[in-house]
Nucleic acid binder design. Structure first.
Lengths: 251, 251
DNA sequence: GTGAAAGCGGTTAATTTCAATCAAAAACAT
DNA sequence: ATGTTTTTGATTGAAATTAACCGCTTTCAC
C-alpha cells in the first residue's frame, strides 16, 4: 500500500462520510496506527482535513462556521501590505474586477487616488465600500452565498463573461505547485475562473498562510496568474518563482 | 461516537428544531449525561448555542443586529407594522421580489417562519439580511447607487425581466390620486416598474407620510398595485380605497 | 408549604487516544 | 553490494475523553 494510495483513500472516505475514525482506517488499510496518524497529520498541514480526537473530519463545515469578521482578524498586517501593492497596479481608465473576500477588501481603501476607474465585483462588502468611496461600481447579479457574502452561480458567470477587464484581483485559499490555485467552494472557483478569463492581467492576492495548501476546487494553474503576497518565507519564494511571477509587498 | 460527531448532531438538531433536551440527546447519541453536559458547555463557550434548563436553544444574533440598523429611520413603528403585514402575505414556495429601501427592510425579519421561499432583491442591505436569516437570496446585478445602496440600470432591469414573481414588495416616495406612484430617481422608478410587471401580485409599502405627495418619476398608476400602509388618516383611507386596495396594518 | 423528581456542576477512576521516540524494513542511489 | 534516505511499526508516558457517583438546586404536583 503506497502512501499516496492511503491518502486518496482517506480523502475519498472523508468526502463521502464527512468523518473518519483512526481505528477504522487501521483495519481497512492494514497498516499501523502510527502510519495513519502520520497520514492524518500530513493531510492536515496540506489543509485537506481537520484532525479531531479519534480521527479526522472534513473542514468544509468548519470553513462555514468562520464568519467573515472572524476571518478578517487573521494576518491583517500582511493583507494591508498586499492591498497597497495591488492598488498601486491600478492605473487611470482601468476597468477591473475585484473578487469577494477579506484580502481584496483591504486593497479598496488604497484605490481612491486613481480618479477614473470602473470596478466590477461579486462581493457585497466590496461593493458597499467602493460606492462609499465614490468609485463607479457594478455588482454582479446572482445567488448570494451566506457565509462569504459572495455572488455565485451561473447567472453571475454569464454576466462576467459579458465584460472585459484590464486586470482582475482575486482572493484564494490554497496555492500549491502541484494542484495550482484552489478554493473550497466549486461555485466560487467557477466565478474566479470566469473573471480570470476575461482579464488581460489576472492577479491572486494571498498572504503567506495560503502557500502549500490545497483545497477542493481548482481555479487554474500556477502560471495562469501573478501572485501578490507578503510575509512569505525564503523557501516558498524561490520555489514558486519557478512557476510564475511572485510580487512581494514590503513595508 | 466521536466528539465532533456529537457536536455536529447537536447543532444540526438545534438548527431544525430550535431547542434540544438533554435527555433526548442521551438516548439518541447513546452516551452518558455528563458527556452531553460537557458538549453543551463547550458549544456554549464557542457561542454556538445557549444553554437552558434541561437542554439548549439556538441563539439569534441576527435579531440583535437588526435593532442597531434600525436607529436612523423615521416612523419606525409604522414601518414595523407594515413589514409584519407584508411578510404575512408571503406563503410557502413563493418567489418574491423585495425592493431596496428602509420600509421593505422591516418586513424581512418577519419572513423566516415561511420555510421555503426564494427572494430576489436589488438592495444590498436587504440581500445581506436575507442570507443571514438563511433565506435563498438572489441579488440583481448592475450599477450600484451610492446614496440608497440600490442596484439600478439597464442590466438590472434586463435581469428582472428574466424572472417571474408571485409577489413583489416595493418602497415608494409619493402616492397621489392623479399622478399615481412616484419616486425621485427615474432609474429607480424603472427598476420598480420592471419588477411590478413581472409580478402576479404587486404591493407598495408606504407609511402615512407618503400620501398626497408627488415626485419626479412615475412608476405606475394607483390601480396597478395594492397599498400596504399604517397610521393613515380617515380622509386618505376613504379617498384612496376608491382607486385601489388599501391594506392597513394595526397593532 | 412539602416531598419527589429532574437537572445541575464537580470529582474520580478507567479507558482511549495522542505525540514522541527508536529501531527495523523498504526503497533508493552509487 | 554498500551506504543513505524514506517509510513503517512498536513502545512509551502524557493527555484527553468517558461514565458513574456525589451533594446540591430547581421545578412541579399535591
Amino acid at each position: 500500500m503506497l502512501t499516496a494510495e492511503r491518502h486518496d483513500y482517506i480523502l475519498n472516505k472523508l468526502r463521502e462520510t464527512g468523518i473518519v475514525r483512526l481505528q477504522e482506517l487501521v483495519n481497512e488499510l492494514n497498516c499501523s496506527e502510527s502510519t495513519i496518524r502520520r497520514d492524518l497529520t500530513y493531510l492536515e498541514t496540506k489543509g485537506l482535513l481537520k484532525r479531531i480526537h479519534g480521527g479526522a473530519k472534513r473542514l468544509y463545515t468548519v470553513e462555514e462556521e468562520l464568519t467573515i469578521k472572524q476571518k478578517s482578524v487573521k494576518n491583517v498586517h500582511e493583507k494591508q501590505l498586499i492591498g497597497k501593492l495591488a492598488a498601486s497596479l491600478v492605473t487611470d481608465q482601468d476597468v477591473i474586477f475585484i473578487d469577494a473576500g477579506t484580502t481584496t477588501l483591504e486593497m479598496i481603501q488604497y484605490l481612491p487616488m486613481k480618479k477614473d476607474i470602473t470596478v466590477v465585483t461579486n462581493g457585497i462588502h466590496q461593493a458597499t465600500l467602493l460606492t462609499d468611496l465614490g468609485i463607479r461600481t457594478y455588482l454582479v447579479g446572482g445567488r448570494l452565498k451566506n457565509t462569504t457574502k459572495a455572488i455565485i452561480g451561473a447567472s453571475a458567470i454569464a454576466q462576467i463573461r459579458s465584460y472585459q477587464f484590464n486586470k482582475c484581483f482575486l482572493g484564494i485559499n490554497g496555492i500549491d505547485t502541484e494542484f495550482g490555485f484552489t478554493t473550497p467552494d466549486p461555485e466560487e472557483a467557477a466565478v474566479k475562473h470566469a473573471a480570470l478569463r476575461q482579464s488581460a492581467h489576472p492577479f491572486f492576492l494571498a498572504d503567506y498562510s495560503k502557500f502549500e495548501k490545497v483545497n477542493f476546487a481548482k481555479v487554474c494553474d500556477l502560471d495562469d496568474a501573478t501572485i501578490i503576497t507578503a510575509g512569505i518565507n525564503e523557501k516558498n519564494r524561490s520555489r514558486y518563482q519557478k512557476f510564475t511571477t511572485v510580487l512581494e509587498a514590503k513595508e
